[in-house]
Amino acid sequence: MSGKQSHQAQSAHLNQGNEALVLRQDKDGVSYLMLNRPKAYNALSLGCMQALVHQLGLLADDKSIKVIVISGSGKGFCAGHDLREMKEGGTEAFYQETFSTCADLMAKIQSIPQPVIAKVHGIATAAGCQLVATCDLAYAAADSRFATPGVNIGLFCSTPMVALTRAVHPKQAMAMLLTGEMVSADKAEQVGLINESVAPEELDARVDQVAQLIAAKSSYTLKVGKGAFYQQRDMTQSEAYDYCSRVMTENMLAHDAQEGVDAFLGKRPACWQGR
């Protein structure tokens, strides 16, 4: 698959009826994954999460893809777990499978080598807000809104809390979790849940701009940097410096770092080889 050509949307292996739960389109080194349950505000059914995990697994091994963008179809990004499905499932085993699959999905987003960008419009609530907080970067339309409203229906957003408390200030996270109130895109940007809010008509262009800026870098360097970011953040400062010193030493010995330094000193564009 060429990173220089636009491809037709490819369906994930899991479907609901005749419709794919996740649509994929690759263009110029960027893979665009779209949640495809518009009538349910892209609620994360078990099948939808499994389809997304499947696509992310395929992309992790695709050297032509340097950046991944996750978006939602229809009127909103993602309304969280599918409460109707969970009610109908009704057993402890089904609940455990749902939440375990969700945890696997969030872990997959942060463990794959490519940076993952959330492109948010409409609402991102509960596990949808968790998805935004988990992605490496997040950009949102200025009229989008965010919430962890489980408390309103007697179901505290405990799993969304894991990602939320690692993305925003504890007091801000606790306010969202305890009140269940909607947060504006401006507020979400202020507290660090998203990188930037932009006019709705500018969202696609802004995300494409950021994705292409990142895609122009060495894929090896992106992989090293993303992996180190998540490894070091739960270490003590001393442990983090020891670990990152080893990472930087290994990085410096790699071909792309040597090429990058030579290109900088020679005032020429670098020619990355992803190693």
Rank of each mutant, 00 (worst) to 15 (best):
E196Y: 08
D136K: 09
L203T: 09
I214G: 02
H169K: 15
Q212E: 11
V207I: 12
A124N: 03
V191L: 13
K171H: 08
A133F: 03
D186K: 07
I117V: 02
V183P: 00
A185D: 01
A142S: 15
A126F: 15
A124T: 01
L164S: 04
D204F: 01
G122Q: 03
V183Q: 10
G154C: 07
V162E: 09
V207A: 13
K187M: 08
L164V: 09
Q212K: 14
R206A: 06
T159N: 10
L137H: 15
E181P: 00
M174V: 03
V207W: 14
A211P: 01
L177P: 00
Y139H: 05
E196T: 05
E196R: 11
A163W: 07
T134D: 07
P149A: 14
H169M: 11
Q172F: 04
A142P: 07
I117H: 02
K187L: 08
A124R: 01
D143C: 10
P160R: 12
D143L: 09
E201S: 09
G150V: 03
L178D: 10
L155R: 15
M176R: 02
T134N: 11
S197P: 03
D143G: 05
V198W: 01
P160C: 06
G180C: 02
P200R: 09
A141K: 05
G154L: 08
G192C: 06
A138W: 03
V191R: 11
R145G: 05
A167V: 10
T148N: 08
Q190K: 12
M174Q: 05
A147R: 05
L131M: 12
L177I: 15
R206Y: 00
H121Q: 15
P149C: 11
V132L: 08
A124K: 02
M176Y: 02
M174F: 03
M176Q: 06
A118P: 00
L177H: 05
L164Q: 06
D186E: 12
G128W: 12
V191T: 12
G122F: 04
T165W: 10
G122S: 02
G180H: 04
L164I: 12
Q190C: 02
A215Q: 06
I214Q: 05
F156I: 01
A215H: 07
I153Q: 07
E189R: 14
L131Y: 13
H169R: 15
P170V: 12
N152P: 00
M174D: 04
A142Q: 13
A133C: 06
P200S: 11
V207R: 09
P149W: 14
I214P: 00
A118D: 14
A140N: 09
A127E: 14
P149S: 13
A127P: 00
P170D: 06
Q212P: 01
Q212V: 02
T165A: 09
R145A: 14
A211D: 05
Q172W: 04
A199T: 04
L178H: 07
R206I: 02
A126M: 12
R166P: 00
A199F: 12
G192Y: 07
E196A: 02
A199Y: 13
P170M: 11
R206W: 03
D208T: 13
D186N: 04
V120A: 05
H169N: 15
D204P: 00
T148R: 01
A216H: 08
E181Q: 14
A140P: 00
A127V: 09
P170H: 13
S184T: 15
F156Q: 10
S144M: 06
A138P: 00
M182K: 11
A138D: 01
C135T: 11
T125R: 12
P149L: 13
L203D: 10
L213P: 00
D186I: 04
A127T: 08
